[in-house]
Design a binder for these strands. Structure first.
Length: 478
RNA sequence: GGGGAAAUGGGCUAACCUGGCAUGCUGCCAGCUUUGGGAGCUGGUGAUCUGAGUUCAAAUCUCAGUUUCCCCA
């Protein structure tokens, strides 16, 4: 099987099949079977993200997957935004239900109906809860495994605070978690944008989203964190008595890293023409031992491999490939799977008390003394993490360009990536301008760069030509 | 949301135009054999997406459905 990443769409379809990540043959549109190799990595991703979420004071809970319609309808904007993509349960057994139940597309309305019962006083705050679950959305856009499907797997954290300021600090903490895990550990680069008003989460005051880029230059939204203000707390009656004895509505935030989608970015950004390249800590098999033997050396070599596996298993996920395939086949197979470290062990190595260590990212081979292997593997693991991150960051940093007018935008958007443009506003009144960009250039406004206070001076909006007040970033989008 | 293409053993595919025995590779199973970059031989296993229509006869023609892929919004 020949992979060619220069045709990303083909590469992506091929790798999901060849590396055994998912099976599209289930037969319901947008519903995909995730297979062990992807699930094992996503489990590790979940684990790291959950540790981070708990480190920052969140506790876990699990809410029902079904949401009664009347919960769903409480917050007006939320209804408008989400109802078109809800799957509804209308019948149980042979009996039609009196009230239909929505399969959660996100859990605000499920969780906040309970929050209203649980939160009473300021000592209950901050209130930080998360759950790991799957959600369902009736997507009308083209579905693609992991990138966009009608059922996906995520973590959602839902927090309540006494003040707007506390809530805004949570938004910043969410961004920090995203940096710590998704950038530092998954080695995926992104920019945080403040979404324009016409593209925020349904029911939120403001939405901040981490956008990465796929190899074809189109952007993919990773976690977003939302400043909900008091929209939901008013709709659901989540109130607390403050120190001053006054009853107030809580200020809320929510944060949603979609692990299955982040996985799509992970495999796409790091993969190459030989297959997946997995960061060491996310690999289901971190070290694969390939024994090399002839008939007469077979038993001896396998015995040494087992000894080696035993000595390394305490620290790493190790597998011996003792199948009857040839070494070349095994090399290609495990490279396709993205296993970070391969150890080749044959009679020549055993004689010298060594093993050949091969790292997946560079293909570099080096012999190492058996007793030094653990250290060498740890070294390679850290070096690969840094290398993957550096490579991805460097590529990503070249993918933002500038344009001052439509002609410039037309030219730059063809190179793909983000294009920074002067814009009249990011308020609702500028939606028409955004629609114009979408129509003319298939370019989506992603928002203003968070934390940047760059102001255009004397520049005109690329769409309407009025005085520009803000720089926005646009990109073609998944 | 609009348009196009496709669907044949587990995977890839031939046959489809011009209706009549379903081809090859790969995988899988068994045996032999083989191992420092995708080995070989022998035997075996396994398929026309679903439903309707036309016809003596449908993988092939017609219609509908489902799913997948591509392009546009």
């Amino acid at each position: 099987m020949k992979l060619d990443k220069s045709d990303f769409s083909e590469w992506y379809n091929a790798i999901t099949k060849e590396a055994g990540l998912c099976d599209l043959r289930y037969g319901i549109k947008g519903f995909v079977v995730f297979m062990p190799w992807s699930v094992m990595t996503m489990n590790r991703m979940f684990g790291m993200m959950e540790r981070e979420v708990e480190r920052t004071g969140h506790v876990p809970a699990l809410f029902p997957a079904l949401i009664p319609e009347h919960y769903f309808m409480k917050e007006e904007d939320h209804v408008e935004g989400f109802v078109p993509e809800v799957f509804w349960v209308t019948q149980a057994g042979n009996n039609p239900l009196e009230e239909k139940y929505g399969m959660r597309p996100t859990s605000e309305t499920a969780m906040y109906s309970m929050y209203a019962l649980w939160i009473h006083g300021h000592t209950d705050l901050p209130f930080k809860l998360y759950q790991r679950c799957q959600v369902w959305r009736y997507e009308t856009k083209a579905t693609k495994p992991f990138i966009r499907s009608r059922e996906f797997y995520w973590i959602e954290a839902h927090n309540c605070f006494a003040t707007r300021e506390d809530a805004m600090n949570q938004v910043r903490e969410d961004m920090g978690m995203t940096e710590n895990v998704i950038h530092q550990q998954y080695c995926i680069p992104f920019l945080f944008f403040k979404r324009p008003q016409w593209d925020k989460f349904a029911g939120a005051e403001n939405t901040f989203a981490a956008d990465t880029l796929m190899p074809d230059g189109r952007t993919l939204q990773l976690p977003s964190t939302h400043m909900l203000g008091q929209n939901f707390s008013r709709a659901f009656g989540i109130k607390f008595t403050d120190e001053d004895g006054e009853e107030k509505h809580v200020w809320q935030t929510c944060y949603g890293p979609a692990i299955s989608r982040i996985y799509a970015a992970l495999i796409s950004i790091h993969g190459d023409d030989k297959g997946l390249v997995l960061p060491f800590r996310l690999a289901p098999v971190q070290v694969v031992i390939v024994p090399i033997f002839r008939d007469e050396t077979r038993d001896m070599v396998l015995k040494e491999c087992r000894k080696l596996k035993e000595s390394l298993s305490e620290d790493f996920a190790v597998k011996i490939d003792d199948s009857n395939n040839t070494p070349g086949y095994k090399f290609n197979y495990w490279e396709m799977k993205g296993v970070p470290v391969r150890l080749e062990v044959g009679p020549r190595d055993i004689e010298k008390n060594e093993a050949v260590l091969v790292r997946r990212d560079t293909g570099e081979k080096a012999s190492a003394r058996t007793e030094e292997l653990k250290g060498k593997i740890l070294e390679a693991a850290e070096s690969m993490r840094q290398n993957l991150k550096k490579k991805a960051d460097e590529w990503f940093s070249t993918k933002t360009s500038l344009a001052k007018d439509m002609d410039g935008l037309e030219k730059e958007i063809e190179q793909n990536g983000f294009v920074r443009v002067p814009f009249c506003s990011d308020g609702l009144e500028a939606k028409e301008c955004a629609d114009a960009l979408k129509e003319k250039h298939h370019a989506n406004v992603r928002g203003s760069l968070f934390g940047s206070d760059e102001k255009p001076e004397g520049e005109k909006c690329v769409a309407c030509g009025k005085d520009a007040t803000i720089y926005l970033y646009v990109a073609r989008q998944y």
